[in-house]
Design a protein around this nucleic acid. Structure first.
Lengths: 110, 110
DNA sequence: ATTGTATATCGCAAATATACGATAGTTATT
DNA sequence: AATAACTATCGTATATTTGCGATATACAAT
């Protein structure tokens, strides 16, 4: 984490894409996102049953997804409804596209 | 990492997507991939100049990308040519698509 | 043979991430 | 008021990631 004399900043988009990728970098969070993106809403309670993890751990993963903005939570105890944040979701889609849309017309090597 | 009594396996695709996302979860690795995907080949030497990191650290990031299979290295000391592995790249593109292709026709909440 | 150029690996330190049990909080139901 | 159902947070242990300097290695050019 230490910065050397070599001063440098990554671009905003690069930072955001890296952060989004980190959010997707755990199987549990992928499952959570898949569930939420396939329904119109979802309860965390269900998710604990679907995942091989303790409730506290699932809650933590949900918190990370909330922090990055990929999901919103509507608190209504004893239940909390979570949904995909469509705006952030679309932004994520766009950012991943900018990386993967290369079609390698030019590639000759390897 | 400990597994409780709650036995469970994530699907192959979920595991692979998570692993690919982890590979993209650092700005330096995104920059490396962007460089490689925009050229037909690239030398690590260039990359060290472009990144705010020591040579050892860049080499480590490259190793991670190699391990996951996103890039190939053609060893030819004192230079090593790296390229995108197109097969894995296309697989990655497909896997990310399966997550993000949702268009939220059904969404009403949030 | 020595120097220059470029990369890989080792060993270590510091920071993050992952997971869980225990506990607290909130509302609905009895 | 007590219980049930469900989630969040705290504290803690362990594992992984990140970063760097030092060193080893390989070839090209002098």
């Amino acid at each position: 984490m230490k910065r050397t004399a070599k001063e440098f900043d990554y671009s905003k988009d690069t930072e955001e894409l890296a952060a989004l990728a980190k959010a997707l970098s755990h199987p549990a969070r992928i499952i959570i996102l898949k569930h939420l993106s396939q329904l119109d809403s979802c309860y965390t309670g269900d998710l604990v049953d679907v995942l091989p993890l303790a409730q506290a751990t699932v809650s933590q993963h949900i918190k990370e997804l909330k922090n990055i903005g990929l999901i919103d939570g509507e608190v209504n105890p004893p239940k909390v409804k979570y949904c995909i944040n469509q705006k952030k979701w679309n932004k994520a889609q766009k950012l991943f596209d900018t990386i993967f849309e290369q079609d390698f017309k030019k590639f000759k090597c390897c």
